[in-house]
Nucleic acid binder design. Structure first.
Lengths: 143, 143
DNA sequence: TATTGTTATACTCTATAACTATA
DNA sequence: TATAGTTATAGAGTATAACAATA
């Protein structure tokens, strides 16, 4: 284990702390754009591709299908998403962003990324790139 | 922003997902050692140094002072910690690990570290070191 | 009066199960 | 019968405020 730098906090402890501090920073940003954390997660998931069922959307953002219903109600009411029954199978709801929803997601994400940059600026640029790359790798592996 | 690799999930999203998946992996490990997540956090904080007040301990692990009371009750009942009134100021409780508490923390941490290694093994060793180093830097900065 | 620890309460988040409507 | 969506309920986790003991 020589050189393994084991004299550090547990990985889980550091990740939980960092995740929590990021959520604290991002909360007021999302509030400024008048959306919730889950609302933002939904908009971001739908930006990449429309979804054919609410269950699939829920799973893609790591939520329960019952948990996103109130979120979808709100997003639909504000006309940020379309949510239409599929004519081919009237049980399912076709979900996609409206132009307005796409704009809100884009603006919120820009603000989020700027806040992230403030944190990441504490790493020298090469370390920063390596960190993000490793994070993406682990994120894909964990999924 | 050339070369900034912005085509990735938000930093917060990745950190939350990774933190959650680590908690899922670690939960059965801690259960096998018959301690809770917060119990483990308390034992680990006290391993590094005894604490003079419960409030200080709570803050050091990012918890509320009211939230650790049941945890301390349990740890004390099982004789994993000592929790004695300070003769110099009878309001405060002096907190430190017992020999037994130190052993439980040590065994649990070894198991936790082994589980972490399984995840980290998905990174090439040099990337792994860089990732951990960056994480420690950000963790210190965020505190 | 200020502080430590404690208790009580309420609030948020989440998980589970039961219901409807379609297939 | 099986599935998508919905609703209702209960549970866990958390935050806030009030209280007792001590300084």
């Amino acid at each position: 284990m020589i050189g393994d730098a084991d004299d550090r906090p547990d990985l889980g402890a550091m990740l939980v702390r960092l995740a929590r501090s990021l959520l604290v920073v991002e909360k007021p940003i999302l509030e400024a754009h008048d959306i919730s954390m889950w609302g933002y997660a939904v908009l971001t998931a739908l930006r990449d591709e429309p979804m054919r069922t609410q269950t699939a959307l829920a799973r893609s953002i790591g939520a329960d299908k019952t948990r996103i219903i109130a979120i979808l109600d709100e997003l639909q009411r504000r006309e940020l998403i379309d949510r239409d029954p599929d004519p081919a199978d009237r049980r399912v709801r076709l979900l996609r962003l409206t132009a307005s929803g796409r704009a809100v997601q884009s603006e919120a994400q820009a603000a989020i990324r700027a806040a992230e940059a403030t944190l990441l600026d504490q790493l020298p640029p090469p370390d920063r790139q390596a960190f993000l790359q490793a994070l993406v790798t682990l994120d894909n592996a964990a999924a």
